[in-house]
């Protein structure tokens, strides 16, 4: 499978994502500068974490105007799997591919720590190998990951099964203590209506090897790889 990893000015999870996809999982993966305008050769697109444009103005607000984003929107509408991680999630929200916004953490501080995520919601190629209630351990690293959406939008997300990950404790209980940033409803990751676009604050690419803390994040990549095989068949 061939992944496009988009590098905006200020992106820093590009290499980590490339390492996991290429070195750990043996996939094809290219890091592409944000001026790229043709993603037709790729089976999936990753918008990685970082501080695109230094988070100036508002996280993701400038990157959303990068030349590559028009193409990301086009392939997303076609049904190509797209994942936005951390700053990538913020870019997806800013570009309108996903609803809602990421506000400053309720602690008003940056947070880097391991979190537990419970799989919920409906079908998405990014989590097809996880069943409802499964818990994975993946770290966060952000200052503005406090997911917010108005009540109407939230109800729609919940009703349509579009909340895919919720912060929880080790046993899968969704508690206030396990919410690291104040996200409404402990929301850690959501999908678009079609299910091919996933945005999440935690970093699956940092949970790819036992040596560096765990391999739970790989289930997302394995899910999308398996889903793409199924699609081809």
């Amino acid at each position: 499978m061939r992944f496009a990893i988009i590098r905006f000015p200020g992106t820093w999870s590009d290499r980590d994502t490339h390492h996991v996809l290429h070195t750990v999982l043996g996939q094809q993966a290219d890091i592409l500068w944000h001026r790229e305008t043709d993603l037709s050769a790729y089976d999936a697109v990753v918008l990685p974490g970082g501080f695109s444009y230094g988070d100036f103005l508002r996280c993701g607000a400038i990157a959303r105007f990068s030349p590559v984003m028009e193409e990301v929107v086009r392939v997303a509408k076609k049904g190509v799997p797209v994942i936005g991680i951390c700053n990538g999630f913020q870019v997806l929200c800013e570009s309108g591919l996903l609803p809602g916004a990421l506000m400053r953490n309720d602690s008003l501080q940056f947070r880097c720590e391991w979190t537990h995520l419970r799989r919920e919601g409906g079908n998405t190629p990014w989590a097809s190998k996880l069943s409802t209630g499964d818990v994975i351990r993946v770290p966060i690293s952000h200052g503005e990951g406090n997911y917010f959406a108005d009540v109407e939008t939230r109800e729609r997300l919940e009703d349509d099964g579009r909340v895919i990950f919720r912060y929880c404790d080790g046993s899968g209980l969704v508690t206030p203590e396990s919410n690291p940033n104040g996200s409404v409803g402990n929301i850690a990751g959501i999908i678009n209506a079609k299910g091919n676009v996933l945005g999440m604050m935690p970093h699956p690419e940092r949970a790819g090897e036992t040596l560096t803390g765990g391999t739970d994040g790989n289930i997302l990549w394995q899910s999308v790889i398996e889903s793409s095989l199924t699609m081809v068949v």
Partner: peptide
């Protein structure tokens, strides 16, 4: 203190 710092980016951190 250190939870305010990214301790993992670059995927090399074995002991944080």
């Amino acid at each position: 203190v250190y939870r305010q710092y990214d301790q993992q980016v670059l995927n090399n951190t074995v002991v944080a």
